[in-house]
Design a protein around this nucleic acid. Sequence first.
DNA 1: TTGTATGCGTTATCAA
DNA 2: TTGATAACGCATACAA
Lengths: 358, 358
Amino acid sequence: MSLSPENEFEPTFDNVLRMGGNTQNNETEKPPVFIEDVARLAGVSPITVSRAIRTPSKVSVEKQNRIREAIEATGYKPDSIARALRSGRTNIVLGFISNMFSQQFAKAVRGCSLILEESGYQFLIGETTYSYKKESAIISDLQQLKPAAVFFTGVIELEENREQLRKLKIPIMETWAYPRDPIDLLVGISNTDGGKLAARHLANKGYKEVAFIGRGGGRGALRYQGFADECERSGISIVKKIHCKEVIDINDGRKVFHELYADGNMIKAVFCANELLATGVYLAARDAGLRIPQDLAIIGFGDNDLASSLQPGITTIRFDSEALGQHAGRMILASLRGEKLNQKTRYMPLSVIERGST
Amino acid sequence: MSLSPENEFEPTFDNVLRMGGNTQNNETEKPPVFIEDVARLAGVSPITVSRAIRTPSKVSVEKQNRIREAIEATGYKPDSIARALRSGRTNIVLGFISNMFSQQFAKAVRGCSLILEESGYQFLIGETTYSYKKESAIISDLQQLKPAAVFFTGVIELEENREQLRKLKIPIMETWAYPRDPIDLLVGISNTDGGKLAARHLANKGYKEVAFIGRGGGRGALRYQGFADECERSGISIVKKIHCKEVIDINDGRKVFHELYADGNMIKAVFCANELLATGVYLAARDAGLRIPQDLAIIGFGDNDLASSLQPGITTIRFDSEALGQHAGRMILASLRGEKLNQKTRYMPLSVIERGST
DNA sequence: TTGTATGCGTTATCAA
DNA sequence: TTGATAACGCATACAA
């Protein structure tokens, strides 16, 4: 069913509520205000105004006050482009996210952005889409964009890109893994430990044969590594391993579900190294008539609304991604302010959230 | 369960795969390349290089070739900040999204960004969080950011903000509603018609008493308007109306579910003006032991992975949000290029996707 | 079609 | 602590 054809051609207008009434538009346009105007009004030179804004400590209190008044009176706002041209740096912090459909990434980015915006930085987001090519293109563009700092929901793997980032000489924040050698700043989780936790959990539940589903590269590979190591220690065998190329949404999980049983294996438990996969597998399993956890136990990684909303919920390896973003924001800020960081790396603990799916 | 304390203190390092090997770092740093360097190499003046890049048609083919070679030889990239200072405009297109947790918004933004990035624009995203205050702050900042164009997943309601946007004299794209008087460009859906479709669908299903859940303002109010109008026409009564302040995620839907029955009403069908609400209500209803659709029929608005993944799926009012984003991107592009648009407004049709929840 | 002169609005640098 | 001067790298305006 859809609207009748006539209606399709003449859709109803939305009577959007307009608020604020008429702006007296007939007023003559206010001329733009420059630093010079403020300076004249305050009876100082432009450079003193500039200093009063950026480094007030270098300006006498008396002039600070006069300048503040002049700024308020005129409504002056510094031109960030001119500022960037001269100083070689904008006040924009760029956050790159590998998949906008991931709630965890969204939370982290939100946490980081709140912290930075409080301090007058602009936080803007770009999407990298798990593609090395796109990532390289973005990193190359960074040289032109001249951001004040950069935040990634991931770590940079290509040495060439790492080198380029280092050359920017700005705070670079990597997250979502715990490498020995971050480029600069890191708020990380150990994906390896995440995999171990999942294996240990399944071992505790008494499973002897398990399956793994995850991306073949990046974090997926790391989670597999930890999972496989701990499975071996616990005497569990991984009877099936499925690698997905790209995981964008739940349907990627649904698609791989049937591969689980393609060999005639009797899979009773699976670790999905990603929550989108876990929920997709869960839903497909249920559609196929399997009982969860009796016929198939599922443990995921990352958590999301859906994993906690389903009944039974999906057991998962979780960490506080909003807190991760906030920590990242604070470290970036400290670094931007030239404060000495007592640690450039921070670890976010993982825990198993046990729900009904295992 | 979590890792043992020792492990918490000494998390396992992730052995992130590094690719690309050593960059010969001992090479002397390449000096930066400016337009003047290219010009000298090509035997022309800097301004000719500038023109060759931006408006090749104004440069002789012969010089174009020489300049192209010089650019490749030197690896020259124009400084976008200097460019922006001089021309008063960056090559950044800003996309503002009201809620990063909405899949529809994410899809639209992705569609728009793909189109614009193909043409050399940077597409960056900011979040507005349904707050007038934040929205006003952002719009005020736009004057400094000097983007080439702006895309909103919504329409701007405050006249003051509308006026400020108009003053920017850049393409302004509004979406997600179908107002009579957009600021500039619009790729819209009629929220009013969406509400009507929902009402008509419930009427067709034979319901006589229905409930509404949605945000009290913005699109929620528009959808209610259409819903209420069509309910009246069809002789259906709205026995319960719940307004939510802010809808961020599924839990907002879960929370309001119980209000449905607070008055002792026997609600048999509900229109949730937003998919996050619909899925939350659905899950809460199921938890409460209600059968869907027998005990409670639910129709949503917007669709998402979850609505289509549940069983029964959630009936919803849908439109192609990725296509919306793409159309928006193309219109913005045309406008940036100074092409005459034969229409500044485009309508996206809505349809009812009937699943098992009604 | 090409080039010259100039300036975008701010801040680095240096001198006072 | 303050100010004069120059410059950031490019594109507009105008002339040729």
